[in-house]
Design a protein around this nucleic acid. Structure first.
Lengths: 344, 344
DNA sequence: TTGTACGCGTTATCAT
DNA sequence: ATGATAACGCGTACAA
């Protein structure tokens, strides 16, 4: 049986309240008693019971991270581990703890989340975007469950805290760059249309076309799974068009790999026959024969920032300031883009 | 303020003990009262406070997963996410919860683990191998902290519960295969020598040589970081040897990618100029132009099995049966190996 | 089948 | 600066 605060109190010859004060660094304890108590604590190898503490203070220093990914999606694994590790690191310093939830087959997410919060298992939840639809979000708001979303939520409400990469801007920068290099026919190898990412990329690309005074019809788009195979096949398909594009904007660097593989087969090459910019870089780019031109906005920041927002939400339920941030993306010029002769 | 068991009892017109019984599915409650109580529960949106419950039953249905990886090591990200997702899925069904710990800068691991257990934050710990040295393990045993190790621990004691892939056998199978194909000079592109993985691969390879009656000196070995770059450079180096090997056994399929890149540069090709077998497959192999010949032993199983062992350890502290398992690896023949002419 | 009384280990309140 | 007493919300004997 492990020792309790009473044992320590007895051994130190003080009341258990005093021991509690020492544990919680209360300033109003005499130095001698502190020493005495700490001696007893060390001697008994005493550790405060968190369940009892939580019960008494009616709070938990625990945050739940929900990621609905199934294990197969290799691409998302990078996202998964990067985010969770970052949050974990952040919370380690704050004496908070991260709980992981990934059940992909759960039906009613908001019920689950409300349950976790009401049971006082978690003080709040960090949700990755694909896991929550608009109804869930509304329910969580109504139930006053503290939560932060990673990724852009479907609805744009001021009460919704989220962190995301500004993918509209990312796509804008990409297309702008390509236009600047003389490209006219650009194809988006975009994510599945169900993802807000895809919507954002589309929007940014169109904006860039518009601002450049170019016709939107020159901007083509294909939605594909974010897998090597899909990218490979899509590239073969697109490059067979009569009026084929001279540049790709991809939703992921894994797609670039697939495209490159297809280009190899076609005896074409990047960047001389096709320029490519990726809106997200996940680490696959290292496998390319040349440095990738891409938009930089690291997942790490999403993790840390969401962790911060979470604590703020927990500590100040009646928040005064908006906690919504789209991380600013930046173009990193590699070697996958080339200037193209502008037809006169 | 959220409702308590007392509120439910009052509303349902029963004692709170009865409510407790209903919550815990006790068989000795009249059906009517069950219905009545559940109505009250639903009405009040009542959720039992886990802190109070934990305090009362003096247990936690929580398992800690410790992975000391820093975020940069892309290769380990696959491991990380696969394992944690699998454990999470498994525990979701058991009403257990997974807590994540990854602090890479922590000094005294065993102190941390003991603390987590003593504070009753976790009921037990799943540790990934690089995180624990022998002293830590001994301390945990002494402190009776329930734990399971993923990966082979340094010491082989019966009280240590662990799950691992039988990497000795994996390497044995690989080398045996290559020898069967006529290869004599084989080089291990092995993991850093500090990893037990590297030791195991070496051992398995030597065993295979010995069993085939071949001289160990024909077996060469290079320890490299498990990165693309290291693999690339190591391959260039090895292939420049006068007496260069005709086959590689690699610790990871990422290494195969690096090797392939190097072979491209040298205008050599796999498998005609070099046969390759990988002892671990992580998902990189999809990027190869041909199917990989590799040893199959999936991480998923490690996750699930460790989760199982953990529960057994928690529920039966005085365990009777040994919980040590090395998953049986299997050779999957792809297209990265070729028969070689045996010099007469 | 249901209710009563008490304990779990800690913090908070109010004295002293 | 310290201590007594009462919560905190739930489970478990034991009694009815």
């Amino acid at each position: 049986m492990s020792s309790t605060i009473n044992d320590v109190a007895k051994l130190a010859g003080v009341s258990r309240q005093t021991v509690s004060r020492v544990i919680n660094n209360s300033p109003l304890v005499k130095l001698e008693t502190i020493v005495e108590v700490q001696k007893a604590i060390a001697l008994l190898d005493y550790h405060p019971n968190v369940a009892a503490r939580n019960l008494a203070i009616k709070t938990v220093k625990t945050v739940g991270l929900f990621m609905p990914f199934d294990v197969e999606q290799v691409r998302q694994n990078m996202f998964f581990s990067t985010i969770s590790a970052k949050i974990c690191h952040y919370y380690a310093k704050q004496d908070f703890v991260l709980q992981l939830f990934t059940s992909p087959d759960e039906r009613n997410y908001s019920e689950l989340f409300k349950k976790l919060y009401r049971e006082k298992r978690v003080g709040g939840l960090i949700l990755t975007c694909p896991s929550v639809n608009n109804e869930d979000v509304m329910e969580l708001l109504a139930a006053k469950v503290p939560f932060v979303i990673i990724g852009r939520p479907g609805l744009e409400l001021e009460q919704i805290n989220y962190v995301d990469v500004d993918n509209v801007k990312a796509a804008y920068l990409s297309v702008q760059r390509l236009i600047g290099l003389g490209h006219r026919k650009i194809c988006l190898l975009n994510a599945p249309s169900s993802m807000t990412l895809a919507v954002d990329i589309r929007k940014g690309a169109e904006d860039a076309y518009r601002d450049a005074g170019m016709p939107i019809r020159d901007l083509s788009e294909i939605h594909i799974d974010l897998t090597l195979k899909s990218a490979y096949e899509a590239t073969l398909h697109v490059m067979s068009w009569e009026d084929r594009p001279t540049a790709f904007v991809t939703a992921d660097d894994l797609i670039v790999l697939g495209a490159q593989k297809a280009m190899d087969l076609l005896n074409l090459s990047i960047p001389s026959d096709l320029s490519v910019i990726s809106v997200i870089k996940n680490g696959w780019a290292d496998l390319l024969p040349m440095p990738l031109t891409y938009i930089d906005a690291t997942f790490e920041d999403l993790g840390t920032l969401s962790a911060e927002y979470m604590l703020q939400t927990i500590f100040e339920p009646e928040k005064k300031h908006v906690m919504q941030k789209k991380l600013n993306p930046e173009l990193i010029v590699g070697g996958t883009c080339a200037r193209i002769a502008v037809p006169v």
